[in-house]
Computed example of a mutant assay.
Amino acid sequence: MRTPKSLELRDLKRLVREGEGSQLEFKLKTTHPDKIMREVVAFANTSGGTLLLGVADNGELPGLKFPDEDSFVMEKGFARYISPGVHYSKEEIILENGRPVLAYHIKKSTGALVYFNPTGKEEDRKVYIRNADRSIQASREVREILKERLKEKSYRFRYGEKEDILMKYLDQNQTITLREFSRIAGISLKQASKTLILLVLARVLQVFAHEMEDKYLLA
């Protein structure tokens, strides 16, 4: 999705026709600010994106009846649920019916991992990322990969028996999960996790985050 620097009504309609995706999310109103902030966190941790407030999931454009109230709820949500704060810009697009749609353009975080924190307690912090048109909670492996990538380091690994088993498996199968790798290599989940993380950081593998189990494949 390519978002214009400043949206006009025709730009808004074009985006809505494209539908929700990895960098675009529709919300009708701010009834559930916690759920909206998960989307914001996911955008910040992935590639950035735009949240359109006043747009239905099916693409209808009713706009917002009380935009000032919705804007206030959003500001409270940014402050209450997200740590550290995200960089974003907001604009208002007026529809033919006179009601506005609020567009929140969320920038990708380049300095730190962004957490959704519903209680303020460190143990309750969660990381969300964007997967197609959904925001999902990141696994421990994906969190570690995101953290390490922020450091912009280069990574090396030693090619040993477990790596050889993994490569031979991926020659025959498109993807592998953490549990599958642990089983076929005869190693602990902890060791399998460490190996997969390092191979992703070394750009030998890539990971596709999933709600159930992440999938790893050759880069």
Rank of each mutant, 00 (worst) to 15 (best):
K90I: 15
R125D: 03
K107N: 08
P118W: 09
L95T: 05
H87N: 15
F78A: 06
F78E: 07
H105S: 10
Y104A: 05
L64M: 08
F66Y: 12
A79I: 12
S83H: 14
F66M: 11
E123S: 15
K126V: 08
G120C: 02
E92H: 12
Y81F: 15
K65C: 04
K65Q: 07
T119N: 06
G85E: 14
V101W: 00
P118D: 08
V86I: 14
S71P: 01
T119D: 01
R125I: 02
M74V: 12
E91Q: 15
K107P: 03
P118M: 08
K90N: 12
E122P: 05
E92L: 11
K65M: 06
P67C: 04
N117S: 14
D124I: 02
P118Q: 03
F78M: 13
L64Y: 09
G120I: 03
V127D: 02
S89T: 15
R99F: 09
L95E: 02
D124E: 07
S71Y: 13
L113M: 04
D70P: 01
E75V: 03
H105C: 10
Y88H: 14
E122F: 04
P67F: 01
A103C: 10
N97F: 03
D70A: 15
S71V: 07
P100S: 05
T110V: 09
I106Y: 01
P67S: 06
G120F: 00
I82G: 09
A103F: 07
M74P: 05
L113Q: 02
D70C: 10
F66S: 10
K76M: 13
A112Y: 07
E75T: 10
F72Y: 12
V86S: 06
P100Y: 07
Y81T: 09
L113P: 00
M74A: 11
V73E: 09
Y104R: 04
K90M: 15
K121D: 11
